[in-house]
Nucleic acid binder design. Structure first.
Lengths: 213, 213
DNA sequence: TAGATTGTTAATCGATTAACAATC
DNA sequence: TAGATTGTTAATCGATTAACAATC
């Protein structure tokens, strides 16, 4: 039986950085870029870049490197960034509003159709061109908009209850910016973005440096 | 020779989640919490929780678990979250403003003293009580404020040039929210927070699910 | 051609998981 | 006491790195 590896999480996480570098090469009108160059730019080992790029199925030319245009296409295709995805944002607070304004996600196919919030001051207004709707309309709103992704930026005490509404409304993927581990049924994709864990890492590195000096 | 392991990155990243659960137990007036319970709450293996907690030096009691109060203290101490850290934020755009408003970091000792921006509209105003100053004052401002951390939220084309100013001004730790890999001298801690890599992971999981159904 | 770079196969490294005696 | 839970030691798993023949 053929066994297909599905995830390669660390490699997948690095692909967007590669894409960024390769796009620079494209703007520079280079037709090829080598793994060595990408590695240098990102402070990685060339062998790691080659291994990562291999999962996209692209084949390089010895001595020259990888063809820029096909490589960009291959990475975008592998990541699914060549497809349009309909999303809603739930909780239009500080972080939520910032995410709506983040141009980069749009360029990768993430289309935020609407945001939902409980604040009467916000309801009916727009943030970066995206309409803010009443949280009460969340369930029918999602159905009506045919959104498949929800960006969850509500205060954490509301995270689990809101998630249950999302699932009921047919959301299949949740990008979770709260510090709550969500309980969801099988088949729902949850990607948690945890700023605290980043700060923990920064903080520990600071302590280690001090301890060594 | 004694060899000290310095990093344990994956464990360090999980500690904030544990802390969050353990704080709930504290609010619940529990005096002990078991690794099994923490694991259940976070969908992890109990053995992983025990291994992770071991690095903080805390010792549990068979049958009961870990003492809540000392455990909280131990994790905070290990993470350096019991210490106050002075920081500045550079680039008070959408994301920058959102981060300033993020209460949680303050509770973990991150003290944002000032933000810097180029926009004349913003300079002189405040965001969540933090003064926005002229980017031109960045170098003297950091020196004067004795900041050791910089949160970097400038548009990516300015990331490297800004970093050089930060280093010159004496910043030793950079929390980098741009999608640029920064080049810094030895001894400067850089923690990169990359939302694109999170979206890449979400996106690939969505494709995998579709492929399997 | 000479040599830089690729892709493959094997070795190493580190993190996760398993097994189990110790113990409250 | 009985049994849940700990901490330790060993096994497994997966990711990174090394070595090197193939090749443009």
């Amino acid at each position: 039986m053929l066994k297909i590896k599905v995830s390669y999480a660390p490699s997948v996480r690095r692909l967007p950085s590669y894409l960024h570098i390769i796009r620079q090469a494209e703007r520079n009108h280079d037709s090829y870029i080598s793994g060595t160059v990408i590695a240098q730019e990102l402070n990685l080992e060339p062998i790691q870049v080659r291994k990562d790029l291999a999962i996209t199925g692209i084949v390089g030319k010895p001595k020259k490197g990888y063809p820029v245009e096909p490589l960009i296409k291959a990475i975008e295709c592998y990541l699914g960034w060549d497809q349009q995805r309909e999303a809603v944002l739930v909780g239009a607070g500080n972080l939520g509003s910032a995410l709506i304004g983040y141009q980069e996600f749009q360029r990768h196919g993430l289309h935020i159709l609407a945001a939902f919030d409980t604040d009467p001051q916000k309801i009916g207004s727009q943030v970066h061109g995206v309409p803010i709707r009443d949280m009460k309309e969340l369930e029918p709103g999602i159905t009506e908009l045919h959104a498949e992704i929800a960006l969850l930026t509500v205060p954490s005490p509301f995270a689990q209850a809101t998630t249950e509404i999302l699932v009921r409304a047919g959301i299949t993927s949740i990008w979770n910016f709260t510090n709550i581990k969500l309980k969801v049924p099988d088949g729902i994709v949850v990607q948690r973005e945890d700023l605290s864990s980043g700060y923990a890492l920064l903080s520990v590195q600071m302590l280690n440096r001090k301890a060594r000096s």
